[in-house]
Design a protein around this nucleic acid. Structure first.
Lengths: 224, 224, 224, 224
DNA sequence: GATGAATGAGGCTTCATTCAT
DNA sequence: AATGAATGAAGCCTCATTCAT
């Protein structure tokens, strides 16, 4: 598991910069700083509404410095995507998710952790999902690939571990993608909902998913 | 029912142009032409990537003429949204949906019609959902309001009509929004899925939703 | 003959702008204005040293206007080239060159007219010959093609008309290119020479070429 | 003769660096390495299209190291010029040119050696001639001076050595410059010509020059 | 009424050179 | 001594909107 995360992280600077003479560690740190520095402005103004000048200012970097660690504005969008996947995965690991042996319990726990995390980072997720179309073709390909491997693939793996899952292979595939989709429902389409009751909404969504999958929720799942 | 559609349509030109001297019918027809003419370019290049020149050319209009029927580029985005809601509603009506008396059957039928329609117009829906963030504040407000009234509200009404629906008020509200969300799943996140099996996927999604809502699917629902 | 000139001129706006809705006449006039307006700055600072802002200012146009009539800075370089070929050809025609029936006399006259014209426009020719390498691949191809057809081709035609020219086909080909080359000698490499004696230098160059070609100069050729 | 070459070489580092503390020999060697390392990139991308980073990378040096041996990017252009003159002169010397006593034979031999050398180094010559305009004023002055002294001056000397040369002083001056000019004809304007027949073209050019100068070619000159 | 030429601020990106490490 | 990260001005180009014709 840990090795997958490492692979994921290492990919970041690989895909963004190729310059031979470059301190890779520094580059990674700076890219991290860019993502963190840029987030607030990007969430507020959107990707197209934010200029490179805005981003440089928000990161406390000069434009020139910025361009040492990215090679185009699109790279920032790309970094936002990989960053999102990384921190999502990290949260799952920190949540002790991988210490649960029962696969159904694991699914329930993963759903709750995921939805809570995504809700906490709702600005980020709203940004990611509405701006992903603006990635250029090559970056988009990589991001979708990573998503398929790491996020959808994660749920695919969870479902596959459940013995006697009453779904066909094709249904499982749809379900894996659908679960990811439903997990971002609150940031993407939750504006009509009472934000004081998020906890209840998450409970409902988890129940909804389990029923949809014809699974019984484990005992005491709400205690999570 | 028909009166709701009328109200929806009438809103379009109201919000876009205020000039009293304009023939309202002509304006509506031209706006229709703009939306239809612009769609292909917009889907291909995205809203920011498409210039007013591109749109004028694609509509076979001069830029001047274009600006007689819209007052800013943003209006076009707004028109795309209202247009989408309109044709969605129209399809539902044409689908004979309002002649079904059993509320559960009506829900099943509405889901199928909706998902099929949305899949047929997947470029449009992808566009709408990824570009909605770029509406300016006022247009956005109106679009969300319309969506809440016409689309979410539509599902809200359907659920309310089901006697003994085993959901709390809060859960119903979440569910109405979630149903709309799931109905656009295929265009928004279906890229991993085999496009030859869309029919199966729609079936699965409908079953998923019904189970999620704790409802039994009506007999013969697949025949639809 | 006149038809060749027309063809040449018409090519200019064809290659530079494709936009469907564009007054072709206006475009041609504006492009002419651009070439004429930009020349002085370009000669002084070179192509790379001159910014689009400089050029716009020198032409009395806004940058936006400039870009209605060109589609990139490179286009200006391209226009300079075609413009040069045009005015060179125009001068030859005005010089009554095509009313001379004896082919050898025609050559002598063409050489003198050419060299005089090129010397008068020495800044332009210096610019053209030293900056041509900076044309992008496609424009370069077109320019070389035009040069081969119109300028080198012109000399090729003159040589071909001379009965009993004591040169092989291969030698004629070299000679045609060499004549064009020598005709720009003064602007390109004349800085060591006394600019008061240009007339003499031209005479010498013409004699040099005729001797090189094993041709006798026609009687009274100096009077031209 | 040798002393002229030495003087030429010594000038290089003199003009480029003034820092007294630098080992002159090391500096010369490094500058040599810079010219040789940078050539390929420069020919491919042109002077403006090549960044200092590109050059440093191509030379296998760090940017810092590069700036120890040059003081500005322009210096590199300057070094390319002096380098060109040096290797040209070197080739002439190696070609045994200075062992020929008959002045007309010497001219013929020099022309052939020159043209062959220039053709072999056509990328370099094309570069030199098209980029010389971008030298800053002071460097340009020096380069032109060196050219006048070493290259044109070389031909001037050869012509002066020919007894009974049927040219006036003014004509000789033009001729010296013209000979240099014609010797770079193939790289600069030879693109229309069949590159398989370069040998023939050189022969023709030499004959052309000799006839132009009213000189008889020495017996057996083709055997060279 | 209809056209499309004109505006000009602002977008992204590059790069020669310096200098802290 | 040697490195390459950092600077920031300046480069080319776009485009929503207006308005003279």
């Amino acid at each position: 598991m840990q090795e997958r995360l490492d692979k994921m992280q290492r990919r970041v600077s690989e895909h963004v910069l190729e310059s031979a003479s470059l301190d890779r560690d520094l580059a990674d740190r700076k890219q991290q700083a860019i993502v963190e520095g840029a987030s607030a402005v990007l969430f507020e103004k959107g990707f197209h509404g934010t200029s490179i000048r805005d981003i440089a200012a928000a990161c406390g970097m000069s434009m020139g410095q910025l361009y040492h660690y990215i090679s185009s504005k699109d790279d920032i969008l790309y970094l936002m995507h990989t960053h999102t996947q990384e921190i999502w995965y990290q949260r799952l690991m920190e949540g002790g998710f991988d210490q649960i042996s029962d696969p159904v319990e694991r699914l329930a726990h993963a759903l709750r952790l995921s939805m809570e995390f995504i809700y906490e980072n709702r600005d980020l997720y709203l940004f990611i999902f509405t701006e992903s179309k603006h990635l250029d073709r090559e970056h988009l390909r990589v991001v979708l690939e990573l998503d398929d491997k790491n996020v959808v693939g994660f749920y695919r793996g969870l479902l596959a571990d459940i013995p006697g899952l009453p779904l066909s292979a094709e249904e499982s595939e749809v379900a894996s993608n659908l679960i990811e989709f439903i997990s971002v429902f609150l940031p993407l389409r939750g504006w009509n909902l009472d934000s004081e009751k998020t906890r209840e909404h998450v409970d409902f969504l988890i129940e909804f998913v389990f029923r949809g999958l014809r699974l019984e929720l484990p005992l005491g799942w709400r205690a999570a």
